[in-house]
Amino acid sequence: MIKATNLVKTFKTGDTKLTVLKGLDIDVKKGEFVSITGRSGSGKSTLLYQLGLLDHPDSGKIIIDGVEVSKLSERDRTGFRLMELGYVFQDYAIIPELTALENIMMPLLMKGFDMKKAEKQGREALSRVGLLDKQKNLPSQLSGGEQQRVSIARAIVHSPKIIFADEPTANLDAETAMVVMKTFLDLNREGQTIVMVTHEKEYADMTHRTLFLNEGILENK
């Protein structure tokens, strides 16, 4: 499903250069639930952003489902993200002016769904994460765990091929984090490919495979 080879990413701050990814290779199979771990600042999130087309690697090749996405224009990358990818961010990243349901409907509306169909499918996604009764709530009226579940619902609503999750449990208490992990596991059991960055071993151990990012290179654990 994902095949990335020789990924290099360097950050420049003034005269200082920091190479975070040093010719890294990664291969994720369809239906896999892969976690990426590593020390703080090791570049876990940077890797996820490259794979999820939110950033450009300096060099290297990324192929997702047969498409060499590293060659796509900015416009086509946005289109690809809409059609094929779903994201769950550490800080939930839901739009404050939109209700839970409206947040979830956004990818569908952008894909051209009519309002009624988008609402129906949005409710189904909310139902999957157990928040149907909160559909009309604004983010400010939801707890952190509920906001993260809205974020997951938004990531799955348009049936993406891959979900990228960046530290999805980092801001949650243990009980809520378990609810989120259970949601991911349920999705994965249904065939959803998931790539998750986490620094919590407990949650990494729940996935099929854990990759450890060390000195810019991935190691299987």
Partner: peptide, 16 residues
């Protein structure tokens, strides 16, 4: 800006 980035991230195009 953050929310604009998120919208772009989830596939909402710049024109919208």
């Amino acid at each position: 800006r953050k929310y604009i980035g998120i919208l772009k991230g989830i596939g909402v195009n710049a024109r919208a």
